[in-house]
């Protein structure tokens, strides 16, 4: 079953917490991965791969650079999770 926006943000929060050690409550839609959440370009790849597994979605390398904020990633997953 497809995840809701709320579930995706919660899932991303757990992933970012695991990879970058950021408290889950800090991971919100408007937060930038690199500027606010200490997720650099390589950690972002780890976040993306973990999100792919968790939400059963494919996020190609070319699309990763467009995912600047938690909101970008959430929208992307919402849109592609049933594809």
């Amino acid at each position: 079953m497809a995840a809701t926006q709320e579930e995706i943000v919660a899932g991303l929060a757990e992933i970012v917490n695991e990879i970058a050690g950021i408290p889950v409550e800090d991971v919100q839609l408007d937060k930038s991965f690199t500027d606010d959440l200490d997720v650099d370009s390589l950690s972002m790849v780890e976040v993306v791969v973990a999100a792919e597994e968790r939400f059963d979605v494919k996020i190609p390398d070319d699309d990763v650079k467009n995912l600047k904020t938690v909101g970008d990633a959430t929208s992307y997953i919402l849109k592609h999770q049933d594809a």
Binding site: S41, L42, M44, V45, E46, V48, V49, D61, V64, K65
Partner: peptide, 12 residues
């Protein structure tokens, strides 16, 4: 090199 693509391929 394309850093992120290489990283993903190399690790996973």
């Amino acid at each position: 090199q394309e850093g992120q693509a290489v990283f993903r391929w190399a690790v996973f």
